[in-house]
């Protein structure tokens, strides 16, 4: 079961990443990036890193990409010329070949259902909120505080630059 989910998420992540790079429409690219982030969050979940998975969705897919989309829509970036203008013969053939290859891959994958080793018991505890919180606020407290100050400084700087009176 875990192996199948991994194959699903991994394929989805790679396909979304490719689609993001190859797509001519900026909005579509941004959306494929969201899909990519969601599938990577799925892989984190399979590795029992719940905190990382949820934060990935919350911060990257839920907040940062919304701002990306916001800017793209606000600037109203023109699309470049589409690669696939309309459904032509080559497109149909490539889809059929793609389905054939994919089904063959899945057939192979089906014969090794438990290929992935299970996540070790002590590793499963590393990804919980409690474990990460303990580490962040004891061992790594200095880097954490420095990062926080850096981010605050960046935010203040951005606001300063956004004000036109700033010389």
């Amino acid at each position: 079961m875990v192996t199948y989910l991994f194959i699903l998420f991994a394929t989805l992540a790679i396909a979304a990443a490719l689609a993001m790079v190859l797509n001519r429409s900026t909005v579509n690219s941004a959306l494929f990036l969201v899909l990519n982030m969601l599938s990577i969050a799925g892989i984190y979940l399979l590795l029992k890193a719940q905190f990382l998975a949820v934060v990935q969705v919350l911060v990257y897919a839920g907040a940062i990409m919304v701002l990306f989309l916001f800017v793209i829509m606000l600037l109203n970036v023109e699309d470049e010329e589409a690669v696939l203008d309309k459904i032509n013969f080559r497109y149909i053939i490539s889809v059929i070949l793609g389905v054939v290859v994919l089904s063959y891959l899945l057939y192979i994958a089906g014969s090794m259902a438990d290929a992935l080793p299970p996540v070790a018991e002590d590793m499963a505890q590393v990804g919980t909120v409690e474990a990460i919180g303990d580490e962040l606020f004891s061992t790594y407290i200095l880097p954490l505080e420095i990062t926080a100050i850096l981010l605050t400084a960046a935010v203040v700087g951005a606001i300063m630059m956004a004000q036109h009176k700033f010389k």
Partner: peptide, 18 residues
């Protein structure tokens, strides 16, 4: 009954804007 329930909830609701 997951132990990151609150974060999950915030993450899911933040996707609704799309």
């Amino acid at each position: 009954d997951i132990n990151v329930g609150v974060l999950y909830l915030l993450a899911v609701t933040s996707m609704g804007v799309y």
